[in-house]
């Protein structure tokens, strides 16, 4: 009998209060409740986190690696966006 595929979920864990959730991997689960449970079992067996998010993998829209140059090039050419671009008289000290 052909089985229906079990959906894929991406797992994010906050390891400590004050830190952002970080992607750690993925799990398969029929629904959100089971996904959360599976994520807890698979990714937090040694106190790795305080909070878990699960997001259906199909809900993620990703940029195309081929567009990398077009999307991120300005960070390299617009050096005037960085503080070191500007000169401040030495006598003034740190600014």
């Amino acid at each position: 009998m052909p089985e229906v595929k079990t959906p894929l979920w991406e797992v994010f864990i906050r390891s400590r209060n004050g830190l952002a959730h970080k992607h750690v991997g993925s799990v398969h689960a029929a629904d959100a409740t089971l996904a959360l449970q599976a994520a807890r079992d698979v990714y937090t067996r040694r106190g790795e986190g305080l909070s878990v998010w699960v997001v259906p993998s199909s809900a993620i829209t990703a940029s195309d690696p081929a567009d990398k140059d077009m999307l991120f090039e300005p960070t390299a050419s617009k050096i005037y966006r960085h503080p070191t671009f500007y000169e401040v008289p030495e006598e003034v000290g740190n600014m």
């Binding site: 595929k5 079990t6 991997g25 067996r45």
Partner: peptide, 23 residues
């Protein structure tokens, strides 16, 4: 033994990123 199960699951997930399904 539970860890080994977890290892299998991390690795299946890594293989799936290459376009093959768990099934």
């Amino acid at each position: 033994v539970q860890d080994e199960g977890g290892h299998g699951l991390y690795l299946y997930a890594a293989a799936e990123t290459l376009g093959v399904s768990r099934e």
